[in-house]
Amino acid sequence: MRLRQKPRAALAYLALIVPSALILVGFLWLFITSFSIRTEGLRSLGWTLSNWSFLWKSPFGPQYPSIWWVTLNTLVMSLIMTLIVVVVSSMTAYALSRMKFTGRKSFLSLTLILHAFPSVTLLIPIYFVLIWVSKIPVIGRGVPLLGGLGYNTIGGVALVMVAFQLPFGIWVMKGFFDNISWDMERSALIDGASRFRVWWEIMMPNIKPGIAALSIFSFITGWNAYLIPLTFTAGRAGKSAVLSLYLQNFISESVMTEWNAVAAVGLFQLIPVVIFFLFTQQMLLNIYGGGKKGGV
């Protein structure tokens, strides 16, 4: 019996370790390549910093926005999206978890259905919604920094990202609200607080881990976003371009042999995510588990 079991275990470990190594190799390649003149496999054929020249000189020419403008765009979009996701999710989740109202059950079912529903299938009609929003004066396309909330604006992209993220956010936050003691909320109501104050002054400070987890998760999602910005902004290197678009544009204009410069941009986008990840992996593992725990 022992003999039969050993090869099976060895095979299992092998099936785990080989693919795991593949992930590490990918990251290693990115790092080596971005500091090399050329690479063969993982071997550098000479080290250089010139791949990082995109930091001060646009590789596409002066009519295109600089990496810093694009980074600012990405940052603004991710932060706005994170802020809205956290605030709206926690408001909605609070009401769903804690308040009695007509239609509560249906709203909860709706959130759950949306949570499972593949929103990506709605990209085509959302395109039309954004075009209409663009036509609304001021909020359509007149907001400073965001550009607006319509098509081809940072705000519009952020809004769609929010919509896609919301069902997940509500479900995660609801889990956290569900775990807060009812007595604390009752006590606050007796002390004279309104439901709004209870939410903001009593509940929110006590679900900080949830807020932190959802924030980090949303921020990373925003920072990495490709498909939604691609679909709802015009041109990959336009004024409202984000990092993913900038990078993809760079890739499609390069040939394989020039990938060292491209790798540097990729690493540039990856670094904040990895730093975030190193500090918050436990939290992220939890949010995945926590957010879906209803299903298990």
Binding site: S181, D183, M184, R186, S187, A188, I202, P205, N206
Partner: peptide, 8 residues
């Protein structure tokens, strides 16, 4: 309250 329900 039984749990005192102090705001932590």
């Amino acid at each position: 309250f039984q749990s005192y329900a102090l705001y932590p």
